[in-house]
Write a protein that binds this DNA or RNA. Sequence first.
RNA 1: GCCGAUGUAGCUCAGCCGGUAGAGCAACUGAUUCGUAAUCAGUAGGUCACCAGUUCGAUUCUGGUCAUCGGCUCCA
Length: 637
Amino acid sequence: MNIKIIFTDNKEISFNDGVTAAKALESWKKETLAYTVAVKINNKPADLNSPIEEDSKLDLIDISSAEGLSILRHSISHVMAQAVQEVFPGTKVSIGPAIENGYYYDFEYKEPFTVDDFTKIEKRMKKIIAADHPFIREELSRAAAVKLFEERNENYKVELINDLPGDVQEVSLYKQGDYIDLCRGPHIPSTGMIKAFKLLSVAGAYWRGNENNKMLQRIYGTGFANESELADYLNLLEEAKKRDHRRLGRELDLFQINEEAGPGLVIFHPKGMLLRYLIEEWERKEHLKRGYDMVMGPQILKVDLWKKSGHFDHYRDNMYFTEVDEQVYGIKPMNCLSHMLIYKSKIRSYRDLPLRYFELGTVHRHEKTGVLHGLMRVRQFTQDDAHILCMPEQLNSEIRAIADFVNYAMGIFGFEYEVELSTRPENSIGSDDDWNLATTALENALKDNKISYEVNEGDGAFYGPKIDFKLKDALKRKWQCATIQCDFTLPERFDLSYIGADGEKHRPVMLHRVILGAIERFMGVLIEHYAGALPVWLSPTQCVVITVTDKHIPYAGTVHDKLIEAGIRSEKYFDNEKLGYKIRQAQMQKIPYMLVIGDKEVEAESVAPRTRDGQNLGSIPVDEFIALLQEICEKKQ
RNA sequence: GCCGAUGUAGCUCAGCCGGUAGAGCAACUGAUUCGUAAUCAGUAGGUCACCAGUUCGAUUCUGGUCAUCGGCUCCA
């Protein structure tokens, strides 16, 4: 009895050193073992059967906590790897981490796996779980580990060990049954603790995420503490599918992407175009309020200009070219060039700066076929683009103003977002000094504004570092919308200057920025965010006038006219159908207000609004409804 | 671009071992005139993605192309 362990309720119990965490818990509160996947010994995650050698504080990792689920899923991935190797002998394993909402494991096998194989694999996994194999941790020297995996013909594991930093002398392995994996851990105590799991999909994935490497087969799966949580999650996935903007785009008649027209090219239908128009109108006003000037450049510019800017060297693969009068033109993939030429059109004084050129600029980019995705990833899109030319000392306040603008815009739509700072990529232009200056400027602005962010090494644009703002779609996939990019290079290449207070020529700095990003992508995220039920101010149809019977049509017609007159986007729905049917149709179109017109309304010269969430507002005068709607729109609801 | 899957009516999907196709919803027509999520009946609608090949005969088998979906890489 020579060490003391302090438990979460501050109770202290003495043990012999080397007691396992599980034994300690058993003496404290035995029942915790049922739902504890691992522990933290003095805040360090560890297995339940790790020995405790000194006085320690012991915390529990609950199976239902985020950390606990991640450990559980990681353990399930090992079980899956074991099952796959047993069902498909010769399969090589590589890596298999827990991810948000599940896990995956990457394999190499001579035949492709299909979803039909899942039943077999799952069956074998259940067998492994039923056998309740303990997860046994072992520490091995590097050399011994390499030898072990070489013998087992696991060259990916060998490569992983060989690539560990030089000072790493020992690695840890985990065994369950006959399966051995290189792994940091911790893991659940034994396979029997797995109560609910499911394999979800199979996909190709490059070894170590590099497209020059071999493509492995990745199996995705998920797992939960119990069956009902798993069922809830699978249900959630089904619900998310119903929010998919591609599906809603068709159901709500917003847009199409037509094979005959070409992949990645969006055709906006009347309602989709109206939505787009409403967003763009709002944006123009917001930009004018913030000191931006609206400009517009041509769709094609001579190739020499793209050579000058560096796009031809660094972005050519993504560009389309065309020939006019024996001159080669590049179809613009970005809007900056024209903006540079506007700046250059006269001599600029320091008093003119900053200059903020705003353009709803339509660009074309040759995206690889495999990346196209509804409105989210297309080949022609319109950016709410601006280029700000300013003095270096104005950089900080300009970046802050943009971050503020982004925050305001996201607030209007009720979006939460994540921020990333992307630094210099490999294939880039400009000097180290400029890159450092630019990166520091962005970083400082983030810090000054107390915006929390993550650093994304090497993910900047070829001409400068950037701050990315990411939104999530219905399936939790993140999409970059707003971005701020700092650029010293283009002003240099275009020899931009301004006359400073000292009467000398100086070089301005340029910020590239978008707020919503690509209108198409933003619309996609927006549609999913609202599950198609757009706020009233953005709804292409704000209300629909519905008659109870044909005899109400004349009065209903005057109501509709009055609404249109008042600037409300109203539709007539006077079909000879039962009221319930028409309500249902309007409901499925997610129209905010259904105005029911029956005898009572004709009599009282009123309307009976019903909201799309089933609320009945009773019979109210038309003017009152108009005022209500106008107020809601005013508040951007 | 890479890996895998898929492509049948406007939509969602059936269609066995090769003998040129069906359902529900939507559409259209008629009846019904109805008070808050589906009235009834009838009609019409398909070059089975496209192009080759095998075959007496291909939606079905084989090859190619295109597109879509899920990922990877890339990106707004």
